[in-house]
Amino acid sequence: MDTGIEGRTVLLAGGTSAAGRSVAGALRAAGATAVVVGSDAGRLASAAAEIDGVVTEQCDLTDPDAVAALRDRVHAAHGGVDGILHLVGGWRGGGGLAGQSDEDFAFLLRSFTALRNVTRAFDDDLRASDAGRLAIVSSTSVARPLAGGANYAAVKAASEAWTRAVAQGFTKAARDAGADPSAAAVVFRVKSLAGLEDALALAFLGLWGDPAEDVNDVTIELAGA
């Protein structure tokens, strides 16, 4: 079955995790180019050895100049991207509200900073594609925040707000051009990604099987069996 993903180029930001590797493998099996971006050379080499034909790029996604250089390399090699999955994350928390340290908040904020950098750098690519797709992995804690995870929930909420703003930008650009929407931004929420790696891959690839206007600015909760 044609999923609409064959021949497309998709960037996986923070893609050396188990979830990233699952998505990269699914992209390659479907005939897409998967560009796995990470900061750790060893983990990138491991992903390249594990997934046939995957492209790897080492980049500090919290550095806007490094992301601009990444964009230039991807443009030179692949002509741009049709999709982005943001997987930069991590957890720190506990200890109630008093335990929400500045150090932990700074660590968690790196994910949001990376999201801002990547989406701004590749926004034109997604708008120019006839099926641009952006997705982030957020947390059910946004809807049900706890004192011990306040830092984490706040950063995830900010990431969701940013992604929804990107979605509105896609809609406005299409309307201003008098064209049908072709790009979409989606939020996936999970309680934990453990055990949901393949479900995420299936849901992400499925975004290309739906019209942009049906999935733009949509929140999808992924749950285990």
Rank of each mutant, 00 (worst) to 15 (best):
A121F: 00
A161P: 07
L97G: 03
D60M: 01
T163R: 05
A26G: 08
A203S: 15
A29S: 13
A49N: 01
V137R: 03
T171C: 08
D65Y: 03
S17H: 03
K172D: 11
A177N: 10
G224Q: 14
A154M: 10
V36L: 04
S138Q: 01
A158V: 07
A143M: 07
A157E: 08
V187D: 00
S22N: 10
G195A: 09
R73C: 13
T16G: 07
C59A: 13
V37A: 07
A121P: 09
E160A: 12
A147W: 02
A158F: 05
G83I: 10
D60C: 08
D63Q: 11
S138A: 05
V10G: 02
D125G: 13
D198N: 09
A47V: 00
G79M: 13
R43Y: 01
V54E: 02
A161I: 10
G148R: 06
A128I: 09
D123A: 05
G99P: 13
A179N: 14
S22Y: 02
G96C: 11
A131H: 08
A47G: 01
S46K: 03
L27W: 01
N216Q: 06
V166M: 13
S192V: 09
E213H: 01
D102E: 04
L61K: 07
L11Q: 07
W162Y: 04
L134Q: 11
L109C: 08
R189P: 08
R28Y: 00
V74L: 12
R120L: 13
D125V: 03
A98T: 14
G178H: 15
D72V: 03
G89L: 10
P181T: 02
A121G: 06
G53N: 02
Q100P: 02
V142S: 08
A34T: 03
E213M: 02
F170N: 12
A26E: 00
G209D: 04
L70I: 01
I220F: 14
D2P: 15
A165G: 14
H75W: 14
A41K: 04
A153N: 03
M1A: 14
R21D: 06
T9P: 00
S22C: 05
S141L: 12
M1W: 04
L207W: 05
S39A: 07
G95R: 01
L193V: 15
A68G: 06
G206A: 02
F204Q: 06
G132P: 10
V155E: 12
L193A: 14
R120A: 14
A173R: 15
A98N: 08
R133W: 10
K191T: 12
V67W: 03
D82N: 12
V37Q: 05
H75A: 15
F204L: 07
L200K: 11
E160D: 09
G93A: 03
W208H: 01
A41R: 09
S139N: 09
A203I: 06
D72I: 01
A121L: 02
V88Y: 05
F112I: 14
L85F: 01
V118H: 13
A135W: 05
V74D: 09
R164G: 11
A76C: 02
A106W: 00
